[in-house]
Design a protein around this nucleic acid. Sequence first.
DNA 1: TTGTAAGCGTTATCAG
DNA 2: CTGATAACGCTTACAA
Lengths: 314, 314
Amino acid sequence: MTTLSDVAKKASVSKMTVSRVINHPQQVTPELRKIVEKAMEQLNYHPNSIASALAHNRTNVVKLVILEDIDTTEPYYMNLLFGIAKGLSKKHYAIQLATDRDVGGGDGYIITGGRATDAEWLDQLDKPFVLFGENRYGYDFIDTDNKLGEQLATQYALNKNYQSIVFIGIDEKEPFEYSREAGYINTLQKHNMIPKIFRIQNHSSLAEKLIISNWRKFAPNTCFICASDRIAVGVVRAIQRKNGNIPRDFGVIGFDGVLLDQVSNPKLTTVKQNLFKLGELLAGMILQKIKQDGAQQGEVLIEPELIQSESTRN
Amino acid sequence: MTTLSDVAKKASVSKMTVSRVINHPQQVTPELRKIVEKAMEQLNYHPNSIASALAHNRTNVVKLVILEDIDTTEPYYMNLLFGIAKGLSKKHYAIQLATDRDVGGGDGYIITGGRATDAEWLDQLDKPFVLFGENRYGYDFIDTDNKLGEQLATQYALNKNYQSIVFIGIDEKEPFEYSREAGYINTLQKHNMIPKIFRIQNHSSLAEKLIISNWRKFAPNTCFICASDRIAVGVVRAIQRKNGNIPRDFGVIGFDGVLLDQVSNPKLTTVKQNLFKLGELLAGMILQKIKQDGAQQGEVLIEPELIQSESTRN
DNA sequence: TTGTAAGCGTTATCAG
DNA sequence: CTGATAACGCTTACAA
């Protein structure tokens, strides 16, 4: 393994000059810099991030804290995780997972599944953190643009000439859900239509029951805007059990676009979150926040994409 | 942050004694050990794994290398990952993900999705590694007991008095598939029945097509043993499209037991892999192998569990 | 059994 | 702008 000293020797400079070329290039004269860079290349030098971490009193580890129950974990976490891991690897950071609030050890946290009730806990954390998922307490976060997503979905349903547009939401008093509903409501109001919202927990079987027990309220030519693919899957099943025709008489649009939309039959038209990118951005944000000693990073919303498939008219 | 020196001072011993209490307790007299342990507790001392890593020329990072395409990644990876992460965290190890063969930086590798063609690449790795998934080249691995799993499934189908038992396998020439088929074949032969095996790629839509295009071959009273839940989902759909009655006339048994079995309608009877435990064991194995400087670890098979649900008679 | 000294590879600090 | 030195927290090797 070649070290800073090796490079220094080869370039006939001190270790510090080499270190500076790596971390503060502008503090070194261009000529010296060139020489050092050549030496690094010839020796195929790669900085030892562990040594650097020690000198900085860092761990080079970011903790991913998942506050939701792991059993109900959506498959989309996998994509998120890959994005995060990718983003961290670039900077020689590694990931540790925590599934409870018992954190510690790590330079910062990426926290997902946080609910309003977690605010108190968040406030007493002593390391920088960023959230995956909207919040309205001023914590730094990244999320899909939930509102835009349902705007796209609702507008799409209108374009396909469904007369009645119903929203099946997730029964949680959380910003992501409010945003999704807002996107739906906004778009309907723009067309002078009155919103109809039902809410249930995020399970396909509950969605199925809901639709069946309210079936007479849904005339043909209705499109269901669902706050998740899970719900959409249940809605599809209910319509099929009632012998409704998808997509001719009934449209269904999901949200997430990870696996379930593909497994469903018919495949779901859905609002697809770009979770990989989201993960990468989360990684970038927490690393920057660590580097900047906890400075505020603000909020970032990622545009989702409407994937057109078999559960709506084309 | 309290360090080794702090503890040493408090206990009036040298740093080395403290270090020994942590790493080689038997080299320290019980009395001293007690004193040191008390000091550690009082000061709430936690070893700095980065410093230790530096002294050992280690990174305290294990790479998880996923050789399968991420898009087709089964949701079960999430569970595996959690198990791994949990196992690693206990020993203050962190995870880095790699989705290609471009590894390096890390004390060892956990490799999943490896195929026979990867042998050459594996042989030239210079760090210890263990595989998730059976192989017959002598590489250390951990996997579900695939053979046992399909034995359980097949025997279960027989117990439920399905007359004809058909296997729908994954069309890959890999040990995990051979083992699953062997479990099915074994069990049938024990009852003097002749195996009927179909093979397709692991997609629900292909399974659906397969069953439909061979429909006349499947008399009522048939149970399908499927090599994955994905396939099982497709089989269920095909049977439903042909108006077959599940579970009375047709049984379906899946394999994996992660998400898809629950989302399916009817819910699937399936062979459930304990992926969390598998992940933990993988972590334990690679850590031990690292500690033992690459010593052979052998192979471990984890017992799966047959989950009885709605896609078979009860 | 216990302690001393040196070193792991990097960076901050201060002097030149 | 560049270099010498000490320090980060721990462990190995050797000495007592």
